[in-house]
């Protein structure tokens, strides 16, 4: 039993972090997702980890870093679909699709089946003012004729999608903590850094605590994806998705509070992280959905 990063995983984490901090700074992120961004991530091997012999726990480490940098785009969907094409993966019941202009494939999961949508003939109305400015959304009235994709287990895809999304949300939380701590050290009021006041310190301590608890849950779920013979897979996934999404949302709110008026501006990145957390809470089951599932396993 070893529930921490191996030396190889630390190297992987540092590698992806170096890539993202060099090329995916705030300005690039704010320009939004595009084909070039996808190609760069694909060239770095982000979408082909499993085919390249990496584990799901390794994929978790990579998606945590993507979240740290708030990298936009249908990353989890593209990963699930093998990373050849920009792919959106959604529950069959949804009518709101993200990044539709960039999609090269759109896949729907229902209880038993995996369905491919005919994108070329899809009628979609893009919506103004998406909640997350880096996640454009469009509404679809009818998906039309779909094609059954044989040989894919929708349950497996949902599980993997939930874990990778949880990992991304963990990254959001982690960076929100970091930004807030840095701001609390430099922002002076009453002639002191605001981070010296207990009211602020305790908010930050709670953010850090939530993030560490979520991190353990997410790593545990990643390790479960790699060890199908160990009992407790579905519960571990729900625990991870619920706690990581909730942590990201609550850290987003607390980070806004710590940043004060600046946290309410477009200029500071905090709102982008909070908005992404809200969006991702709707992917592969909300935190409420997953808490309910955990209760069913009791």
């Amino acid at each position: 039993m070893f529930l921490d990063l191996s030396d190889d995983q630390v190297a992987l984490q540092q590698g992806i972090r170096a890539l993202l901090s060099g090329r995916f700074g705030s300005e690039r992120i704010r320009a939004g997702f595009d084909r070039e961004m996808f190609d760069e991530l694909a060239d770095a091997g982000v979408f082909s980890l499993i085919a390249d012999g990496f584990s799901w726990a390794d994929a978790v480490i990579v998606f945590e870093q993507l979240g740290e940098f708030c990298v936009p785009g249908p990353l989890v969907g593209s990963f699930l679909a093998g990373g050849e094409r920009i792919t959106g993966v959604y529950a069959e019941s949804t009518r709101t699709i993200e990044h539709i202009a960039d999609l090269e494939a759109l896949i729907l999961l229902d209880e038993e089946k995996v369905l491919a949508v005919d994108l070329a003939n899809l009628v979609a109305e893009s919506l103004d003012w998406p909640l997350d400015p880096l996640t454009p959304v469009a509404r679809v009235a009818d998906f039309g004729e779909t094609t059954l994709l044989a040989g894919i287990d929708p349950v497996e895809w949902r599980q993997r999608g939930a874990v990778l999304t949880a990992a991304y949300c963990l990254g959001l939380s982690s960076r929100l903590c970091e930004m807030s701590v840095a701001y609390a050290k430099e922002r002076l009021q009453f002639d002191r850094p605001i981070g010296s006041f207990q009211a602020i310190k305790h908010l930050l301590a709670d953010m850090a605590m939530r993030t560490e608890v979520a991190r353990a849950a997410v790593y545990n779920a990643g390790a479960h994806l790699d060890a199908s013979d160990v009992a407790g897979l579905t519960r571990s996934i729900s625990v991870a998705k619920a706690l990581a999404c909730e942590a990201a949302i609550r850290c987003g709110k607390d980070a806004t509070q710590v940043h004060g008026g600046m946290g309410y501006t477009w200029e500071v990145d905090v709102h982008l992280y909070l908005k992404r957390a809200w969006v991702l809470d709707t992917h592969f089951g909300s935190h409420e959905h997953h808490f309910d599932h955990v209760a069913e396993t009791a």
Binding site: A216, R235, E288, A298
Partner: peptide
């Protein structure tokens, strides 16, 4: 209450994972 039970279980499970970590 069921949801709250799920939350408690999730908290304890996650803290068990954190303990192992």
């Amino acid at each position: 209450d069921r949801r709250e039970l799920g939350r408690s279980l999730a908290d304890f499970d996650a803290l068990w994972s954190l303990t192992k970590r």
